[in-house]
Nucleic acid binder design. Structure first.
Lengths: 116, 116
DNA sequence: CTGATCTACAACCATGTAGTTGTACGTTAG
DNA sequence: CTAACGTACAACTACATGGTTGTAGATCAG
């Protein structure tokens, strides 16, 4: 299990990595099948090197990891990174819910200085 | 409520907008307080125009919206966009869980050709 | 061993992004 | 009315990013 406390740079890399359709597709694929980079590359209308770069971005973000298998590198998705991102978003929703509480406080309090 | 079906470009904009610490901070702030752009700008060590641009990025991503209030524009966070992003991530986790099912199938099946 | 395959990496180009400053315009305060 | 304020937008710089091609090192197949 991965440490759940992400610093700002890690969050940057996480969301930035997810902000590209090719990379999201790669993540979805390697979450189910561990796949070599070259097999991945066949699926996309770009060069092998371009796919390699996308994988590197995902790896720096912690969304995938590679392991050597003979001459190929098998890429596999890391669901923990996705959960960490999801937790982040949940925290924003909690901030939002806290606001509701305050509004209800305001409504519950009798209007002071209601100078309309 | 916002339409929940996001196309690829919208997802790109969503995650890209979240991939910046200043923008995440702005979102957190305006989720609780509706805040003018100039008041927001005081909080960050950059020019007013730079903050304005960040707000514009967030707006294009659907994470905030602006409403005119006299000469100022009040920015408020939209939690629906955050929920949409969270749902996206949940879908990746579901993809991952589906893989588990398949692994269990493999384990359940008697080993064929178990040539160790 | 030799050739084909998979990967890594560097160099390069085009484009987008984050920041700046400057200008212009509507709105509020006095 | 005039001055100050809040915003919008354009132009510019610096740098990151997504793509390319080319080269080189490991590893596998025959």
């Amino acid at each position: 299990m991965v440490v759940d406390q992400l610093d700002s740079d890690e969050v940057d890399r996480l969301f930035a990595a997810l902000a590209d359709p090719t990379r999201r597709d790669i993540v979805a694929r390697v979450l189910t099948h561990e796949t070599s980079v070259s097999v991945l590359a066949e699926r996309y209308a770009m060069s092998f090197a371009a796919v390699q770069k996308h994988v590197a971005v995902l790896e720096r973000a912690g969304l995938v990891s590679k392991r050597p298998h003979g001459r190929e590198r098998l890429v596999r998705g890391d669901v923990d990174a996705i959960r960490a991102a999801a937790r982040l978003l949940d925290q924003y929703e909690e901030i939002w819910r806290a606001r509701i509480g305050r509004i209800e406080d305001i409504l519950a309090a009798p209007a002071e200085g209601d100078s309309r």
